[in-house]
Amino acid sequence: MVKLRVEFLGGLDVVFNKQRTYDLDIPSSGAFTIKDLLDYLVDKMIDNPKDVEVFIEDGTVRPGIITLINDADWELEGELEYEIEDGDVISFTSTLHGG
């Protein structure tokens, strides 16, 4: 079991039932990585299969979405391979362009 919070910012909540924050208890034995989390989000939390492409492209987070692990760019933490620990906050935010 891993306990974490996920957040969808920058308008990404539209594909997750318009809810920005979820506290999750995910059953898992052994390491649970960001890659595993993406699979979980796609399988369990995106209702409309047509919305998957808004979030995922080529097996990873779509370009234009920034992924943060405890408020740090996921690139600083190992990206898809990062092993989530209890209490972690994983945030996804769309890049905004308007001005």
């Binding site: 308008g11 808004v54 492209e57 779509r62 370009p63 234009g64 920034i66 769309s94 890049t95 362009h97 308007g98 001005g99």
Partner: peptide, 25 residues
């Protein structure tokens, strides 16, 4: 460095399409 790959064009929304609240921007 932040965005080596551009977002797909249909995911980009501007203020005229997406709208915007004045004091937020």
């Amino acid at each position: 460095c932040f965005y080596p790959v551009p977002p797909s064009p249909n995911s980009v929304s501007s203020c005229s399409e997406g709208g915007v609240i004045g004091p937020c921007i």
